[in-house]
Design a protein around this nucleic acid. Structure first.
Lengths: 158, 158
DNA sequence: CTGTTTGGACAACCACGTTGACTATCGTAC
DNA sequence: GTACGATAGTCAACGTGGTTGTCCAAACAG
């Protein structure tokens, strides 16, 4: 395995970063399922986040998430079917359909925010506040600002 | 935005981890495309890694990647079509079809390994070897061992 | 009033996963 | 030596999350 040794230092780093991300997301959704949101999937949280409490439109949502308006529209369809979003006509512009969070959507987003904070706290307990902060500082220093975005859904797939 | 403030500390941590992972993967594939592998996608590297220089079978590959044998088979189909893998009969067992890397596959995997190392070097240059090592140690300490895996393809999607 | 943007929807397609069903082969136990 | 259970692979149908292209209706700017 000389050419593709998984112990190569460069190979381990991305795996560790992914493992950190995944462990947080997995724990979040395990707990979210327990709290009445079994259908909420990793990408959905980012979508709800992008919709925001003020609502938006499918086109604008696609823009925020970095995907096409059609993709955003289909995602909204699914979240509507799951009861997290709802559509409404825009009285000021008959072309636009406002996308808003339902009560359930707000509840899911609020719970995920609380849980994310709790999960970070768990890291603080295990590593210490200074080391977690240093880790965040280092990542901030080394990643380009444009990679710190919400457009999670599409980047991995196609 | 009180309930879903993106500046909430717990929300920032996973985003930073993802940004770190993504920046490495993005840079890797930008350079990989430049070096003659424009079709190699993030998931493919993990698949090639899982196939290994000794080759394997679709079922075993599915097992390693944590997906069904059918999903692994379809992924192999695509990599075969792209010229990175090839199938061969197992002379010792007529049921098994060996999956091996082609020359192109070995080349892609070798280049990605070299590039991963170079990208980690870039982090070392920017942060210092001690901080990168500390970052890795911290992540290792805080992530469960079962989240440090190769089964990237499926976890995010379905 | 007319021509151009814009928002949304529809269709076809692709990548990547799932289950279920089916066939062929292998290994074992009788 | 044969019957049977486990294993490898494939096919089909489907779900999700993307893409591009097309089209229409509403809005806007000249």
């Amino acid at each position: 395995m000389s050419t593709s040794d998984p112990e190569r230092p460069g190979f381990v780093l991305p795996l560790l970063l992914l493992a950190g991300f995944r462990s947080l997301i997995d724990d979040l959704h395990t707990e979210l399922a327990r709290q009445g949101h079994p259908d909420l999937r990793p990408a959905h949280g980012f979508v709800l986040q992008a919709v925001g409490v003020d609502g938006t439109t499918a086109s604008e949502l696609g823009h925020r998430l970095g995907v096409s308006k059609q993709a955003a529209g289909k995602t909204v369809d699914r979240l509507v079917a799951l009861g997290y979003l709802e559509r409404a006509d825009d009285p000021a512009d008959a072309r636009r359909k406002l996308v808003r969070m339902t009560e359930k959507g707000v509840d899911g987003l609020r719970r995920s925010a609380v849980l994310f904070d709790a999960l970070r706290e768990r890291w603080v307990t295990r590593l210490g506040a200074d080391r977690v902060a240093a880790l965040e500082d280092d990542l901030r220093a080394v990643t380009p600002p444009d990679s710190f975005r919400l457009d999670v859904p599409g980047w991995f797939g196609t």
